[in-house]
Amino acid sequence: MKIAVLVKQVPSSESMLPLSSDQTWIDEGQVSFVMNPPDSFAIEEALLLREKIGEGEVVIVSMGPERVKKTIKEGLAKGADRGIHLEEEGKIETDPLSNSKSFSSVLKEENFDLILTGLQSDDTGMGQTGVLLGELLGMSTATLAMETEVQGDSIRVKRELESGWFQWVKLPLPASISIQSGLNTPRYPSLKGIMGAKRKEIKCVSSAEHRSGAQTQFMEKVFVPQTSKQTEVIEGDADTAVARIIEILKSDIKVL
């Protein structure tokens, strides 16, 4: 079983997010980056599948500038076997379709049985790359997997639907599947894993080699949301807050 996990590096949820001077993205120089949290569930699922099957290879694939090597290494330290880095210089590409064409051109010859992704990225939140890539590579696809079971040359996936509904689907391999956050408990890299990761291969593919599709969608402007709602802010100690809450419940909302 050969499994690729697509992993993205994104601004950490605690990072400051200053706008870039042209206001089409953030000023990445001032931002701290982490592995996209949903992707850590996809890595864990890949490692669990490899353990259950007893053989196989887990490959961490990431696109971005030099900094994403750190995220690839984190995946290797958790136990993945090797990495592939689709390099990008300059501005980060935010078009899922052209990015998927890049992934497709690099991953085609690898003939993966399974491609796993997180459900979406915390930065642009397009939530499409795994499905686009599956279609481009002629694979079957499923999203928001809550459970996976490999059965011979198929994989059974419990998909999360809306409002507490679920559905099992059985996909023939090769398949591309997005993993719902929370389905497993991502492991931390061990010290041995971290040491071992240094010797693992990371193949680099330059943007000139992987970029094929033209960009068809782009961020035009990024801005701080304006709230239209009139919000009454209640500050002060707990007693002040309690007194005002009771007044609101009584007189404003009239539920007491």
Binding site: Q128, L132, T141
Partner: peptide, 23 residues
């Protein structure tokens, strides 16, 4: 932008090579 749309609409985007702006 339902779960179902997320599940299949990107495939339409890839089949026809037209961009999908979600959410």
């Amino acid at each position: 932008h339902s779960y179902q749309t997320r599940d299949f609409m990107p495939r339409v985007s890839a089949k026809l090579d037209i961009p999908f702006i979600p959410d």
